[in-house]
Design a protein around this nucleic acid. Structure first.
Lengths: 346, 346
DNA sequence: ATCGGTTACGTAACCGATTTCGGTAAAATT
DNA sequence: AATTTTACCGAAATCGGTTACGTAACCGAT
């Protein structure tokens, strides 16, 4: 069975395709009789307009491209879910690509998306990415780009990110509220802005609570892994005055630290409290359950696509395109690993 | 900056678009001089063909639609990752939709994908889906459909699934090899074929090892949750002769069972061994680490898209379209929760 | 009878490429 | 010198819609 076209309907009724087109789109200049006849045969032939023809004429792809470092990562699949839900409501579709955290591949897929045809791009920069000329080049072709999570100040574009500073502040403050006084931090590498913000939030909380910043209580990850978390936990415990709480830059690091602490005979949270970042599903299932800072992934996806769709619309209407930076609050999820038992019957 | 068109190049060189088009595609009838001139100005103007125009002319969307129940689920994001990697190599793109495990929404999104324009569809049926008329209707429009994971025998289509039978058999056999003799099974609801296969594999292993099938050792989940796993573990332990091993239909059920067993003072795996299914990332991080049967998600995505692309090609070449059913082996991941300590120094 | 104004529809350009069919010139053949 | 061949390129149809513009028919009013 072939897809019916306007021509098929027109031939059956002895009118031109123009008349059929107008009848289907409820133009005023069509008599009720022909309008109904057209609608009836369109229904009968199961007509759906050829999307390519419409898009070519309208110069609109009705597609947004999404580039993430890794589709499999739970954070990104959550973001994608939010994106899909929003854009589908407006009849747009999502084309998905991954950069595998490679700057090279990021350049390749963004160019490919442009060549393939998209109305806009939602991009989370790879960890390798520092220069953003490849994105600026796309903007020169009037292609709106919205960044999320991993962004860059170098690019004049809207962006949506988690409030890492506030999340880290809340986590640290929570530990201090629980009565822990020697709070250490396992930070991430300096490059992604996010981890710098988390470090800053940690420091700000210490300052707000009138506590000194102790350099020996800060360790810096390279790969941000389970193993690094374990290694730094051991390093901390060898200090003359070991910390009684650890705020880790990620859940994997936090879980690695907890594993190592348990092996060293330290109880969590009685001897050492631990908080992670990202709120992976595992956190609830571990013993003890792991406190963490949840990033609003789904909301990030929604907000980012809303911004992008707005810019696409503004561009089409030849209005000035407004950029905005949205910072969404992180939510502290308090679980067993950071609750001082004595403080429970408070 | 506007995107350059064939017309732009033609105007600059004083030739027609036909000549430019042929020069760019290395047609024989073009002189070396004009060919080089065209290539040079195309390069200079940064020309990329308008994808919509090409696709309209070629009657090919170069897009495959993917429908999964839930993008966020780690299994599906793994599958999607495999799909994206394969189709991008052939210049295709992926449009993503989710059915949210709703039959209604599955119908909506598949029709929407057809209307939007795709060359083929990769679908994992929702749990609610029994009838497949909505997919058959699309096949009538010469749209190839390949099913994966949750499939249906009602539809004449290629499919790619995990060998649930073999995975379940291996898991059960492993428990029996470890010296456990009273192996129970927490099965899923009867509807999805997958869980029936797992049950059958469990039974087959018992038979192969000459053990009787004991109905009291089988429980059936409805929602396949953590809580159900815990409840059935308790139920099993109340039996006069409780099982010494549990093979669960999913990791969440297995983890729920382990939690309940520990609360009842049973040691895992000393008193009761437990194996799950799906090999979630959590399994490695829990204490004890949880044995599980890994589904080859990424490979499923790859194979399914390979089959789909083949069918798309066959359809375009007007060759007969061949359907095939691919069954990929599951891989048993043995971890602490199923290893009898006595059997280690064997 | 002429004019202005609707109503309802056809004509044709257009979006940007691909491709068939010719057509014109120069070169080669008779 | 007439004819055929070859090389190279233009004209135009096509994919399937959208839409500005034109026009025929009919109305009532002058």
């Amino acid at each position: 069975m072939k897809r019916a076209t306007l021509r098929d309907i027109a031939r059956e009724l002895g009118v031109t395709v123009a008349t059929v087109s107008r009848a289907l789109k409820d133009y005023p200049d069509i008599s009720l009789a022909t309008k109904q006849a057209v609608l009836a045969t369109a229904e009968r032939l199961n007509y759906t307009p050829n999307p390519l023809a419409v898009k070519l004429r309208q110069q609109a792809y009705k597609v947004v491209g999404v580039v993430v470092p890794d589709i499999v990562h739970p954070f990104f699949s959550d973001v994608i879910s939010g994106i899909v839900d929003v854009v589908e409501e407006l009849g747009y579709h999502v084309i998905l690509s991954q950069s595998n955290e490679s700057y090279e591949k990021e350049i390749r897929v963004t160019q490919m998306l442009h060549a393939t045809g998209v109305d806009g791009l939602l991009v989370c920069l790879s960890n390798e990415t520092v220069a953003v000329d490849h994105l600026r080049a796309l903007q020169d072709y009037d292609l709106p780009v919205v960044l999320f999570d991993k962004t860059s100040a170098e690019l004049a574009a809207s962006s949506v990110v988690t409030n890492d500073f506030q999340g880290a502040y809340d986590a640290t403050a929570h530990l201090l509220d629980q009565g822990y006084t020697r709070v250490a931090h396992i930070k991430g590498p300096t490059h992604p802005e996010n981890t710098r913000q988390r470090f800053a939030g940690y420091q700000a909380a210490l300052t707000a609570y009138g506590l000194p910043f102790r350099p020996e209580y800060v360790a810096e990850c390279q790969a941000v892994t389970h193993a690094e978390g374990a290694a730094f936990a051991q390093q901390f415990m060898r200090l003359p005055e070991p910390p009684d709480a650890i705020f880790a830059v990620s859940d994997s690091v936090a879980i690695g630290a907890i594993t190592a602490l348990k092996e060293m005979g330290r109880r969590v949270p009685e001897d050492v409290a631990v908080i992670g970042f990202s709120d992976w599903a595992v956190c609830e299932l571990l013993t003890p359950s792991v406190s963490s800072v949840a990033q609003p992934a789904y909301a990030i996806g929604r907000r980012a696509s809303e911004l992008l769709l707005r810019e696409i619309q503004q561009l089409r209407d030849e209005q000035p395109v407004e950029h905005s930076r949205v910072v969404l609050d992180a939510v502290l999820k308090v679980r067993a690993s950071s609750q001082r038992p004595e403080s429970n019957p408070e």
